[in-house]
Amino acid sequence: MRLAALTGVELRKLALRPRTWVSVGLLCALPVVVAAFLGTSELAPRPGQGPAFLSAVLGNGQLYPAAALGIVVPIFLPVAVCVVAGDAIAGEAQAGTLRYLLVRPVGRTRLLVAKLFAVLAFTLGAVVAVALVSFVAGTQLLGTRPDALGTTTASLSGTSLSPQELLVRTLLVMAYVSVSMLGVAALALLLSTLVDSPLVAALGGLALLVASTVLVGLDAASAIHDLLPTRYWLAWVDLFRDPILWTDVRRGVLMQLGWAGVLLAAAWASFTTRDITS
């Protein structure tokens, strides 16, 4: 009950903040721009050469929400999530409002959990917004194949998917992409409890992202690939195979939960025992 009230307050703060909407707007804008170029030029990567998914999209705009999430996953979405998560506690500390929340008193654990919920809500909201906007952009700018509308769509494995299956798989991609953000979000949140600068906390989350991306691309570091948070970020593509290839998706989810569990426990331990001098 008390947690629900506080979470409500945190969500209202997020919603009342212009920056939230600007970042969601920018996230949605990128896939629209890509769709506009694809739709006007019809120059998709040729099948078998470019990213597998974008070539399929050109023929069917209904696939575009998943493709759009694929576009924002590597950089845009984690940047936005890190900014929000890094701001969670450090932003309040920098503005001086943290001490007033805590003397209300909002319990420290409760505040941290409410902030986590707000970060998750932002991530989910951003993913849903990108999916909805890109569905509209996809169907309007890319069009649907005359024969495909309301009938079937080809999966990556060549079999056909009914519109219901397509919807379910798009929802699965949305869920998977959201979960993929847990690791960097949890690190930004942990740093947010340690420093009084939201910028430093957000950059810390992004540093993990960059480091992980570099190491994933480095064969010499293959020993630790399975521990890197970005290792399975692109496994969402497997959700469009037929049957769905769950192996990497499952590993990806477990890895994100592992990172989030460790980092959030550290965040809790640091925040509940720390002197608030901001």
């Binding site: 009950m1 008390r2 009230a5 506080l6 409500g8 307050v9 209202r12 703060k13 009342l16 903040r17 212009p18 503005a95 001086g96 409002t97 001490r99 007033y100 929340l101 003397v103 209300r104 008193p105 909002v106």
Partner: peptide, 27 residues
């Protein structure tokens, strides 16, 4: 009730909105 080391509020909201939010944080 406390004021420690100067007041602090969310700058882009009104004073009233600030007090309401803070009051709603703990029912």
């Amino acid at each position: 009730g406390a004021m420690v080391e100067g007041p602090a509020a969310i700058g882009h909201l009104s004073g009233r909105a600030n007090l309401r939010l803070l009051d709603a944080a703990v029912p």
